[in-house]
Design a protein around this nucleic acid. Sequence first.
DNA 1: ACGATCGTGACACTAAGTGCCAATGCTGGC
DNA 2: GCCAGCATTGGCACTTAGTGTCACGATCGT
Lengths: 201, 201
Amino acid sequence: MSAENLREVARIAVRDEVQRHAWALFAHQGFEATTIDQIAEAAGMSRRTFFRYFSGKDELIIEKLVEAGERIAAALAERPEGESAWVALRAAFDVVVLSQESRPEQARALRLMLRDEHGVRASAEEWRRRWTDLLAPQVARRLPPAGVRRDPDPDPDPRAVAVAGSALACLDAAQLAWAEHPGSRLAALLDEAMSAVARLA
Amino acid sequence: MSAENLREVARIAVRDEVQRHAWALFAHQGFEATTIDQIAEAAGMSRRTFFRYFSGKDELIIEKLVEAGERIAAALAERPEGESAWVALRAAFDVVVLSQESRPEQARALRLMLRDEHGVRASAEEWRRRWTDLLAPQVARRLPPAGVRRDPDPDPDPRAVAVAGSALACLDAAQLAWAEHPGSRLAALLDEAMSAVARLA
DNA sequence: ACGATCGTGACACTAAGTGCCAATGCTGGC
DNA sequence: GCCAGCATTGGCACTTAGTGTCACGATCGT
């Protein structure tokens, strides 16, 4: 019975181990300059096997971001029912804000790597889409009902996608400014960004 | 004297020609399935030469998006001085909205390709960053002055980056919904998305 | 102890991307 | 008209990413 679980446990452990080695190499050489051969060798496996655990170098990055996205979505789901979408989003973002402000060095380094290295940026922009998809349904529930919803539930409400996307744009802008500006406070920057957007009308 | 110019003219003409062939192939086979060898052969050049005109398949996509971004930025610059950032952005977006609604087939096909094909999406997400950088300075001028700006002009105002990014998120959401929903009107969807975001406070 | 299954490594192959060099063609000066 | 110089081009070789296939070995259930 436990075979199924055991394999999964082993798989996750191996993935974590590969991640560890990979990030060590990234820190030294940068993302682009690190080859999969090097990662595989450092982790003690063949190149071919690396590809059985990760679809490519990209996934090493994306996985972390997807994790963060899931934590945000979970936090959003737990906000009180009546709270407005924007306030709930801001509160949900605290899970990443706090975690990043608790280890500023690493978070800043990662964020700057995301800014500077072509390869990472391209793959990593993928997270925006995934996070948006994750958050949009939650946002939809907190928006005033749409004018006329003829179909039962055609596609995700474009307004919700727009609001979720906007919130993520604020988070992105705040994180970037924070990473570039060593003295700054991420929470304050995010507040500033999100209220600038909310007070547009 | 004209040698310099002439070369540039030739270069642009060749680039356009390659673009034509490439998009024809993309339409038939999709982006991923089209190899650079095929594009080069269709355009009557060697693979090696292709890489002297474009840095990769990605650039065939990005170039078009950068063009559109520049048109938006230009339109934004021409909006009246007193107009609020959000209204000006909405108006500036009309240059792409109108152009897309005038050839819905192609625009929809491109947008769906952007949604579905990994390779394109990754490269194309790059445009968001570039557009944001292009629009943010213009947006900054239309925002109420920042609370306290100690430095002379440290980095782009994060509030402006957030607002520009939010507007682009709205555009993205609207375009996606429009592409997925054949009967819909892009302008209306964009209005809906942008007012949903503006009326958050 | 046995057979099925899974993980792994080795090999071969395609495609992207880059550096190098030789040939070709155009430009400008004589 | 001719030649020297420059840019464009194509061919070749090489690295890296990524994928399919196969065979070996460990493990698990019976």
